[in-house]
Amino acid sequence: MYKILEKTRFSDKVFKFRIEAPEMAKHAHAGQFLMVRANEYGERVPFTFADWNPEEGWVEFIFMVIGKTTAMLSDLEVGDCIQDVTGPLGHPTEMGEGTWIVIGGGVGLAIAFPVARQLVATGHEVHAIMGARTKDLLLLEEQFRTILDDDHIHITTDDGSYGEQGVVTAPEERLIQAGKADRIFCVGPVPMMKFATLTAQKYGIPIIASLNPIMVDGTGMCGCCRVEIDGETKFACVDGPDFDATKVDWNDLRARQAAYLTEEGQSLKAYEEVRCACQR
């Protein structure tokens, strides 16, 4: 059992957990993830390390409520326990030299943040491009502002309710043209990553994407997380989750991510019904 030491609420749907996990804290790196099984009946779901502290023996992850598991997690409080937490899994992000653009869209911002923070901590100049559909869905703005100056933060919303209206590729292209990008890291919805990649490719800037297919074991045993990279099948949990974004087959990733939409909806609905009944 893994104890929740701290729960931070960033918005209605976005939370951060600090979990007691001394051994994991000693071995975590930016870009790696852990897997959670909330309780005995739970599914195993992956979350990227947001922070960790080997001296104090904890790890943190940030999550957005989108389905049953994340809804269930959001109902847990400090002092409660998570049944199983496994990690670290996956390869750490490789932090090459130069100026970086870190692009995060939607929940991807939770994954982008620790990478940006680690880049800053290791002396890189970093520009963050934060994308969201609308203002309310923009995650972690304050956290990004604690590590980056305002002129290094570029916000876009699809509906123009905040920041500039449009998609992440507009500021991306401007920064590239201004010579502010030696390397790019991106994570978010598939269409966003795809277009961010096309833009980077146009200028020959190396770009890596952190891929988030559905996972079951996270240890390379089942093959559920497979992605197609340069025509070859790779397992995101052990070969990734970071890959050269120019080599990713995006259609394949998108189709596999959507494979359980019906079942996921069913699961969430059943949970919400029970939850409402309890609160009555």
Binding site: Y41, V216, C222, C224
Partner: peptide, 21 residues
């Protein structure tokens, strides 16, 4: 391995009592 793990380890045959489909 995935097909069997979903059922044997994660009990997907008892979805939605168990969360893994």
């Amino acid at each position: 391995n995935e097909y069997l793990t979903r059922v044997n380890l994660m009990k997907a045959n008892n979805f939605p009592t168990y969360d893994t489909p």
